[in-house]
């Protein structure tokens, strides 16, 4: 089985990133980059606002967004559970509906991006790592957006944000792109908290078949975040935020969760 390490993949991503910026410069008059959205099943089922915010953010960054209505799920849930037959069926469907077009594919989830990049080559032994980008990664590394361009006339209310960087984000080699974009929003104050890199305890099916351990990990995370005095937890993966939100509601904690695209979208004028 041919498995490439994250580190080597990093190098390739940065190489391809420099190629893209050369061929598709973000200048006025140049053709708009066409981006195919991979919505993710969680945004499809529960968190429509995150999908909407992602489209608005990409369009604000100058992209034309395409969405394939027959798209379903990347196949990570069965893959992580060990049913690779079911995972191959889902992966095959995503390849036929979305990846086959050879457009740039962007998704508001590092976890789903990791599945496609690192998981698919485990499912298909002769496969190279498919190109798919996490939203923040695409905005910063490819479109070279360092500071989020704000066009909203009214500044949103000030908010103290505890930023949760997801484990899969580290896994695909994100280097704080989401955080960087959040930091450029003048109404956002990023607050540090203890054990910042710790997992939220979600782990897909793990959260249902190891519920007490999963909740233990999540509560540890929330305890550290609450001590920081943050108003909300912002992250780039709805899996993590769904996990934390489930615990927040059950334990009636005073904090909310949002996807970072929702904060970026607040800065866009009508």
């Amino acid at each position: 089985m041919r498995i490439r390490t994250y580190a080597r993949y990093d190098a390739e991503v940065s190489r391809s990133a420099s190629n893209i910026s050369q061929t598709e410069p973000m200048t006025t008059g140049a053709p708009k980059p066409k981006v195919r959205l991979m919505l993710t099943c969680l945004c499809d089922a529960f968190f429509g606002e995150v999908g909407i915010a992602t489209v608005r953010v990409l369009e604000h960054a100058g992209c034309t967004v395409v969405f394939d209505k027959d798209q379903t799920c990347c196949g990570q849930p069965p893959f992580n559970s060990g049913d690779w037959t079911a995972a191959r069926l889902a992966a095959g469907h995503l390849m036929r509906t979305t990846l086959i077009h050879k457009d740039t594919v962007v998704t508001p989830s590092a976890s789903c991006a990791a599945m496609v990049r690192e998981g698919y080559p485990m499912l298909y032994t002769d496969m190279a790592h498919p190109e798919i980008f996490e939203l923040g990664e695409y905005l910063v590394q490819h479109l070279k957006i360092e500071t989020w361009p704000i066009t909203a006339k009214k500044m949103p209310a000030k908010t103290k944000v505890a930023f949760h960087s997801s484990c899969h984000g580290r896994g695909i080699g994100l280097k704080g792109e989401q955080r960087q974009l959040l930091a450029s929003l003048p109404w956002v104050e990023l607050v540090p908290f203890d054990q910042g890199e710790q997992c939220c305890g979600f782990g897909g099916a793990f959260s249902a078949n190891h519920p007490s351990i999963s909740a233990g990990i999540g509560m540890e995370k929330l305890k550290n975040i609450l001590e920081s005095g943050a108003d909300e937890i912002v992250g780039g993966d709805m899996g993590c935020l769904m996990q934390l939100n489930g615990l927040i509601k059950r334990n009636k904690l005073k904090i909310k969760t949002r996807h970072f695209s929702q904060l970026l979208a607040e800065g866009i004028g009508e």
Binding site: F46, G48, K69, A208
Partner: peptide
């Protein structure tokens, strides 16, 4: 479903929040 009861033991189930993406699109 056991997966649901596993999740629900310590956490509230996620609920649909805000608009539906497909309707909006």
């Amino acid at each position: 479903h056991p997966a649901k009861s596993g999740w629900e033991e310590f956490k509230d189930l996620p609920t649909k929040e805000g608009r539906d993406f497909r309707k909006w699109w």
